[in-house]
Design a protein around this nucleic acid. Structure first.
Lengths: 352, 352
DNA sequence: TATTAGCACTTTCACTGGATGAGTGCTAAT
DNA sequence: ATTAGCACTCATCCAGTGAAAGTGCTAATA
């Protein structure tokens, strides 16, 4: 009995047929969003089976929790578990058309600043997939100081300009208790540049106190305050963030027609907290991740899937990108797109 | 006959009653979004009139194009012209609660950077009105150079850091034909800082060529290239932009329940072009502006109103803020909120 | 023993035809 | 000038109906 064999060896050769049917069912459902019935599936499968036979198989699949029927006389629809099996073992990915790859490549290499690069990548993802594209701001754990500069804005505010990794500039305004003259600041900057140029920011912080001791003796304690300022600057780490493009694409899908639901999703995008948490998991996994429906652990996204891939510099993961769309997205197309885009972005970000 | 007198002197004392009824009708409609009928209006007006009388007046108002009936047996709904008359001459604004004013003030003064200030202002507008808040990035026409700095990133890329107006920092990466050494750049920066600190950027550009002539003679033409770089930098003006907060608020309104419409509006927000054009008009007008429905000239916004006010520094308009919401927004509450927020933001931005 | 034809059954969907209610415009009375 | 009265119009709700789609089960079949 097919029912028992499927349970016993869900991937075994005995059920090739059941799996093939599951596959075509999901492909069909992804294509046009309608529940798929036995008759349609029998035709679509190309397996010369009668609808009745298909029905038996569908019944088994339903019992396994891979598909379900919205109501008695509708066709079947994949469940989260169904999609999971689909992407894990049934999916045949469609490689990207080389024209598309080329397009992304072109767009990315003509870009200069990191910030703009991120936006472009997000836009590319969104455009090509027709879903929402998302790219996190890279968090460089190796922040090699190239140049630091202090600028006196007013009596108790100092602008700190940090150039790191030969690419990025960070501006931070900090408040101080006492007034520093521009020449004092200049001195401090010179010292720091001489001492720490090319060093990782975290290293600088560690060594700062040692240097501070020496400096105090040598320079009448003037540097003491400056150093503590520097420490302040280094402590203020940038909070994680992302660039999201094309959320309006989601509005085209029927499963998002519920305004309340949609609003909750958009609010989650603005909130950023939950979304970032999902993306974080992809950073940790260091590989592609696919969250289907409520697998993400967030109720709001229970009709959404998230496909992510980390991007790296020097073999270190510094960010994540991906797409967000309805659970019935075209995984076979989307997965390579996300994958390739991550690789391309990694390549472009590679320090020269 | 009331019909004729209304046409002849639309603001005359003869029609105080018609105007009062129009006012209460609109107020009522703004309150609960349902077409208002003669019976309800008769009660609401507090004027001791029979529904029949009210009907006659409504008939007149409809003929004047101030209200219209969605269908025969529905009540009346204000037209754009009706809203226009309402805000122009019938509206009694509700001053903000001082607690709210205080809240905005607190939020704004605890903020440091200009960028963050803009975001906060936008968020405040959105929160208090329950609509979408929008604030343009200030465009300072007086960009007084405080400090310029060149940094060699690679053989043909230079990072330019501009500090202007003692507040803002602008980073620009430019590509050059030939390689400049850091010391060359340092020289150039020193020269520029000595010569132009405190000067307006546009002035600098004008005088740059004169200085260039002199410099060429004096410095063997090394400066020539640097100067042209500087010119390049100054030419690249920042493109206008805005911060929009709370677009999801719009999804609560029944008139936005049409997904297509909503999507078009959101797309317009992302496009930015049309929205910026509307905001520009408020810059030029130098005062509060209210665009009701299609008055904005954009089809997508035909069920939206935009209330804007410019904000200034030193009596010069440098940006616009406002809210976007459905045409039936609570103008009496919204108008003072936008007005006050603009004034508060102006105050906070005042250079020290 | 696996497959299939046949059939009764269920449920959605689209449509229909009142019935209801809200609101209007007109007319005639005040 | 105002108002009561009334016929009329539309949207909305509801129940009912028939068609379409699809299922599960049973019995026949290869």
């Amino acid at each position: 009995m097919s029912r028992r064999s499927l349970t016993q060896s869900p991937l075994g050769p005995t059920n090739e047929r059941a799996q093939a049917l599951l596959k075509t069912l999901i492909e069909r459902y992804i294509r046009d969003g309608q529940p798929v019935g036995s008759r349609t599936l029998a035709k679509d499968s190309g397996m010369d089976l009668s609808p009745a036979t298909v029905r038996n198989v569908l019944s088994d699949l339903e019992e396994l929790g891979l598909i379900k029927a919205p109501h008695t006389s509708a066709g079947r629809v994949p469940t989260v578990r169904g999609y999971r099996m689909f992407v894990d073992s049934l999916l045949t990915v469609k490689p990207m058309r080389s024209a598309e790859v080329e397009k992304i490549k072109q767009e990315l290499i003509t870009d200069l600043s990191t910030d703009h690069l991120i936006s472009t990548a997000s836009a590319m993802l969104s455009n090509i997939t027709g879903l929402a594209g998302i790219v996190t701001i890279p968090k460089r754990s190796i922040l090699r100081l190239q140049h630091i500069e202090f600028l006196r804005l007013s009596e108790n505010r100092i602008l700190v300009i940090l150039v790191v990794n030969g690419q990025e500039v960070q501006n931070r305004v900090i408040n101080t208790e006492r007034d520093f003259s521009q020449s004092e600041l200049q001195q401090a900057a010179n010292l720091l540049n001489a001492e720490f140029a090319g060093t990782d920011l975290t290293h600088i912080r560690e060594h700062l106190f040692v240097s501070m001791q020496q400096a105090r003796d040598a320079m009448h304690g003037i540097m003491h305050n400056v150093m503590s300022i520097t420490d302040k600057v280094l402590a203020a780490q940038q909070r994680p963030d992302y660039v999201l493009v094309g959320q309006t694409n989601l509005m085209s899908y029927a499963e998002m027609s519920d305004m309340d639901k949609l609003r909750q999703i958009f609010d989650a995008f603005n909130q950023k907290r939950d979304i970032l948490h999902i993306l974080d998991q992809s950073i940790e996994a260091e590989g592609m991740q696919i969250f289907i429906g409520d697998e993400s652990g967030y109720q709001v996204l229970d009709e959404c899937s998230v496909v992510t891939a980390p991007y790296k510099v020097n073999d270190e993961v510094i960010g994540v990108l991906g797409v967000i769309g309805p659970t019935r997205m075209a995984y076979d197309r989307v997965i390579p797109i996300v994958d390739v885009t991550a690789k391309l972005l990694s390549a472009v970000l590679k320090p020269e």
